[in-house]
Design a protein around this nucleic acid. Structure first.
Lengths: 224, 224
DNA sequence: CCAATAGTGTCTTTTAGACAGTATCAC
DNA sequence: GTGATACTGTCTAAAAGACACTATTGG
């Protein structure tokens, strides 16, 4: 008779704030790795969850009171060496949210915090979470090259400059404003709203996601 | 106390033979869905498997005696409605193999068979395996547009025409031979061997994967 | 008017598509 | 030589990069 291994999920929730890419981390309060920072995740509960995606959303709600704008399966990590308790299987999701949207909730929970990538590099994280974050980051960067997913790191109204900054923060490269505008147009995902933002000198056009948008994948990557 | 749900893996093993894309199916001998065709998979066994990828490879070996040239995680399927026994979680892998390479083994196992996609559409498959196959197919098609993965459906020596046919079979569209040759060259994954194949009239150059190849992803998709 | 940010026009670059033209083989 | 398949040369097309140019704002 085979006993099922411990099945957990973990979330890599990204946001961008002031040109810095951050990941939501929570402090572990139980063994193993008690006291260390870790990804917000937990055990899949067949009694309450209708799917593992449901588990992922529930954990983000419970641990930080947030609901992401975007959530997608990254991949499964498994093995004997990733948890001192033995063989474990973790389904990892990566997710995006606007900083303003989440900030309120994060601040009321003192064991949840936005951590920048340089900070993460220096921390000692629980389990193989550092590796998981790197895989998620790689995927987010790739996806940023051929889609508009970074928009999910922004509030519901945003300018082209906002979007440009978020993209540049994620891929750590400058992009051409012109290229971005062409893609915004071509994607058909967005509509201009009757409002302008006074961020810079000249007022900037505000955009929002259309009510029934489909995420478009472009046929070629941005390059440099 | 939370009991872990039943954790299984399934494989969608593709090959191309004579211009037909096929999936390896096995006949179920136990309930539920006994007697129906299903994907070759099974339960993850922490006692023997070092990872879920290991489970996937083991199941392909046990059920059909084959070792794929390419194996990659597709995604996790979960829910209460996919198995009459209740909440289940299935990690799905998709894989590629050359027809010649696998044929011998498949023929010795009478409950394993290559099934074409039109045939699959007409069959009544176990669980949600029809849906899983469609998701895997979609992924394979996407990947074919920006990489050379279809080469893993071929024997170790192959011609450009072989590769072209496999690609066209997968995406169900004709491509330009010229575009393919440019990509074969640009990828740096292949080397010409000192041998020619007498498939058509003029002898065709044979290629093989370099000993230390890296799978290259192109910056733009093939289009039509 | 000036400085700064928003946004446009347009030329270049890259890489795929199209397709004609050449090469090599069996017969 | 003929016909069929293999391969190359080269023009066009689509979309991104580069970058100069215009527009709009606050002061």
């Amino acid at each position: 008779m085979i006993t099922s291994p411990l099945l957990t999920i973990d979330n890599v929730l990204f946001t961008v704030h002031d040109g810095i890419l951050k990941v939501l981390m929570v402090k572990r309060s139980i063994e193993p790795y008690s006291g260390l920072w870790s990804l917000p995740g937990g055990i899949v509960d067949p009694a309450t969850d209708t799917s593992t995606e449901d588990t992922a959303l529930r954990k983000l709600r419970e641990k930080a009171g947030v609901k992401p704008n975007y959530l997608e399966q990254l991949e499964v990590f498994s093995g004997h060496d990733r948890d001192p308790r033995g063989f474990t299987v973790t389904i990892v999701y990566y997710a995006l949210i606007g900083y303003q949207q989440a900030e309120v909730h994060i601040h009321t929970v003192d064991d949840a915090e936005w951590v920048s990538l340089p900070q993460i590099a220096q921390l000692n994280l629980a389990f193989d979470h550092k590796k998981i974050i790197n895989v998620a980051l790689e995927r987010l960067r790739q996806k940023t090259l051929y889609s508009m997913v970074p928009v999910f790191c922004l509030p519901s109204l945003f300018t082209i400059s906002d979007l440009k900054q978020v993209i540049e923060t994620i891929i750590e490269k400058p992009i051409q404003r012109k290229s971005l505008m062409r893609r915004v147009e071509a994607s058909g995902m967005f509509e201009e709203v009757d409002e302008k933002a006074a961020t810079g000198k000249r007022m900037a056009q505000l955009y929002k996601l259309k009510d029934n948008f489909n995420i478009v994948n472009f046929e070629r990557n941005l390059s440099f």
